[in-house]
Write a protein that binds this DNA or RNA. Structure first.
Length: 483
RNA sequence: GCCCCCAUCGUCUAGUGGCCUAGGACAUCACCCUUUCAAGGUGGAGAUCGCGGGUUCGAAUCCCGCUGGGGGUACCA
């Protein structure tokens, strides 16, 4: 295949928050186009007036930009096949629809939605396939012309051939065939003048010279209709590649009710776009060397349609979290600090932040977790509610106070101790008291950090400053009951 | 109901006729490291390769049937 001619696209509908499935398709489309020095196109399918949400277009651009999946051509980027928004392409669809009518591949239909609903209900009741009964195909020509002239509301329907299979090839799934007898005369042009996707998709894909239609499997059963239209116009068909759909834990199609489907959710919780992309890539494709952590560039270079998986993967948030942690740990401190900025619920001195981050970096699964991680560093713990009892089961609160009372003067005498002196002091006092060293360390930890799970104690004190640490120790032990 | 797609550990997958008494990762468990948590290291458990028939000297891998799951079935995309 000649490389420069590859053109892929995503064609989302602006109906709400950008969906992870859209990002998933965008990733494969963009990577595939880029690999072949081709072009990745964004086209907005806003032909359903009832579901249209104006802000959704901007949200979509934001989501793609966040993920570094900006389209090469699209409503914002422009391009040689403008416009890229379907509502602005109406004349094209009308012209194409008229042409299909003129060549006998389509026909006007005057049936009301009510009649169609009734028809469908009857067919369902009889457990028959729900298909249009072609009532308007058999109308006398004179009547059709007259009703058209009278301006009667109507749609344009595809005239599916009476016999024979519609066969096409999908790179991922092989040869797929539908009998025309199970197809229906789908509406191509709605009575409001807008096209349905059955018309708009093949017309636009052809007009925009899309070479590879890479998108989710949920579209597979519409392909025969596109193929029929391609053939009616004698257009060369694009290569089809249907990705499996992302699933919920119960294996149903990934949905809002059962999952976080919105790209925004992941962004706002502090998932790194590179981790999200890596994860999505791994869901639909496998690395030839079995690698799991790889960059977008590596994915793009290694991507072949043949290695795309056929079965529908369950979206496993746990694995994404793990992967996100891997990416966070790989960040240089300076960059981590920068990436954390939008997530900070309170301002932190840059210098302080850079001292804290080495201690919390490996404990973060998402950037959003930073605020909880910061609390021990920035906020004085409340001496009245320190978890001594839960953290140290072997000792009474009175014992703990006693131990800390003895430790306090020894520690303060040291000023700002070095690591081994600090450790030695705590250990020898623990030995004197007949305690396990860990219990004394834990007592100090709870007193100074306010929690039983913290970064390494010595480093922690160093970061917050020893005098502050000693103050916390003092307040904590004074709040403990004396013997 | 009808049509299409899919089917390997709980989850994501490797595997394209013999290298598979099925490999890796997440999750899980144990141990190691260790003053806690995390990270890291080691090890364990976990899949009669959905079931049944073929083809073949030999099948997770090829064929057929079944079952299961998913998607579609709109004047939605």
């Amino acid at each position: 295949m000649s490389g420069g001619d590859v053109r892929t696209r995503i064609a989302p509908s602006p109906t709400g928050d950008p969906h992870m499935g859209t990002l998933y398709a965008a990733l494969f489309c963009k990577a595939f186009a880029e690999k072949h020095s081709g072009t990745f196109v964004l086209r907005i399918e806003d032909t359903d007036r009832t579901r249209y949400v104006p802000e959704a277009v901007e949200a979509l651009h934001d989501a793609l930009h966040w993920a570094h999946l900006d389209p090469d051509e699209g409503p914002l980027a422009g391009g040689p096949y403008e416009p890229y928004t379907q509502s602005e392409r109406l004349p094209t669809y009308h012209e194409r629809a008229q042409r299909l009518v003129a060549t006998g591949h389509a026909y006007p239909c005057f049936c009301t939605p009510e009649r169609l609903a009734r028809l469908r209900a009857e067919q369902e009741a009889r457990k028959e396939p729900t298909r249009y009964d072609r009532h308007c195909l058999y109308l006398p020509q004179e009547e059709v012309q007259q009703r058209l002239r009278a301006g009667e509301p109507h749609t344009i329907r595809l005239r599916v051939p009476d016999h024979g299979p519609v066969t096409f090839h999908d790179v991922i799934r092989g040869t797929i065939s539908f009998e025309t007898s199970v197809l229906t005369d789908h509406i191509l042009l709605k009575s409001d003048g807008y096209p349905t996707s059955h018309l708009a998709i093949p017309v636009d894909d052809y007009s925009m010279r899309i070479s590879h239609v890479i998108r989710a499997e949920e579209w597979l059963s519409s392909v025969p209709y596109y193929v029929l239209i391609y053939r009616a116009f004698a257009w060369a068909e694009p290569v089809f590649a249907h990705l499996s759909v992302l699933r919920n834990a119960d294996r149903s199609k990934m949905s809002k009710r059962k999952n976080n489907t919105s790209v925004r959710w992941y962004r706002e919780h502090g998932f790194l776009p590179e981790a999200v992309l890596n994860f999505l890539a791994l869901l639909g494709w496998s690395h030839p060397e079995g690698e799991e952590i790889f960059s977008y560039e590596e994915f793009r270079d290694l991507l072949t349609l043949e290695r795309i998986v056929k079965s529908g993967p369950i979206f496993d948030l746990k694995k994404l979290e793990w992967m996100n942690g891997v990416y966070i740990r790989r960040l240089a401190i300076g960059e981590l600090a920068e990436r954390l900025q939008p997530f900070l619920s309170q301002p932190v001195e840059p210098e302080m932040l850079e001292r804290i981050l080495p201690l919390v970096q490996e404990r973060l699964k998402t950037l959003g977790e930073i605020n909880d991680a910061l609390i021990p560093f920035l906020q004085e713990p409340d001496p009245a509610c320190l978890p001594f009892a839960q953290a140290i089961k072997r000792l009474t609160l009175q014992d703990i106070r006693h131990g800390l009372e003895l430790l306090y003067p020894q520690l303060t005498a040291l000023g700002a101790p070095d690591a081994s002196t600090f450790e030695g002091t705590v250990r020898s006092l623990a030995a004197e008291l007949g305690w396990k060293a860990g219990d004394l360390f834990m007592s100090v930890r709870v007193a100074v950090t306010g929690t039983s799970a913290s970064p390494p104690l010595y480093d922690f004190c160093n970061v917050i400053g020893w005098s502050r640490a000693f103050q916390r120790l003092r307040s904590a032990l004074e709040a403990l009951p004396a013997r």
